[in-house]
Amino acid sequence: MPPEGKRIKGSACARAEAREQLRAELLTAARAIATESDGFDGITMRSVADRVGYTVPIVYQYFAGKRALLLDLVDVGFTELAEHLDRARCPTIQQREGGLLPATAMAYWQFAMADPHLYRLMHTLPEVPFGTADTSAPARACFEALRRAVAPEPGRQVHEWAHDEDAAADLLWAQLHGLVGLVLDGRVKGGGERGRLLLADLTRLFGSPTATASG
């Protein structure tokens, strides 16, 4: 990290990489502060600046304000969630979990439990578009992973949903989010250990999973 307030030097490419690295450090700092302070409500631009050893004006060069920082964190969260969900396509993971659907559900669960504050921010920050043309690419990727998980496949019977082709994915997201939220709020008997076991029953609501992974 360059000294506080010092201009980043080097080639245009090197400067761009340095700026992107600092931006990532600021976002990482915000996540760390949220973990320590039990959420993002108490985050300030000054607290983020202090964490990385920069002055507040430097932070404002990267984010117009706290909301802009939080919006970028939402995109980071959905990008990471999409990566987790994509790993469920691995045949080895599907074999272990019992199919694509339960593997996807487990990936979703593990992401939420690993960083609950970021997960909550992703789903509670006001005026973040979902289900519209303005939905971010990472959020759309997550939805596509859920839609893929409930798509008909050989050996698995699925319900017929009355509304539209996205109904099954929307309902899966709702069920997963509901279970995760109840566990995080301490509203499920048995806590996280039992909540994780309930995932198997949840996926059965959407059909009988195959015994082996598809190719």
Rank of each mutant, 00 (worst) to 15 (best):
E83K: 11
T104V: 05
R147A: 12
A29I: 08
T203K: 02
T55P: 00
V180G: 00
Y60G: 02
G10C: 11
L73A: 00
P129V: 07
V52H: 12
Q21T: 14
A133H: 14
H159S: 06
A168Y: 01
E153P: 01
A34Y: 06
F111A: 02
G131E: 06
D170M: 06
I58H: 07
T35Q: 09
M106A: 08
L198C: 04
A167D: 04
A68R: 08
V59M: 01
Q175D: 15
T55N: 12
H123S: 08
A174T: 12
A149E: 05
L26W: 06
P154E: 10
T132G: 07
A32P: 06
K6D: 03
L118R: 00
H123A: 07
P152N: 04
L179M: 03
A24M: 14
I33K: 10
A30P: 01
Y108G: 01
G10D: 11
D50C: 02
P209Q: 10
F40I: 05
R194T: 11
A107P: 03
L199C: 07
L70M: 13
M45P: 03
E17F: 10
L101E: 02
R96V: 15
H84T: 05
Q61W: 10
E20Q: 15
A24N: 13
A32G: 10
G195M: 10
E144L: 08
A169H: 03
G98L: 09
M113K: 03
T44P: 11
A107I: 05
A24Q: 15
E193T: 15
E4M: 12
T212L: 13
R96Y: 15
V74E: 03
G5V: 14
E97F: 11
D50T: 11
E160I: 06
A133L: 15
L176E: 02
M1P: 11
L199W: 01
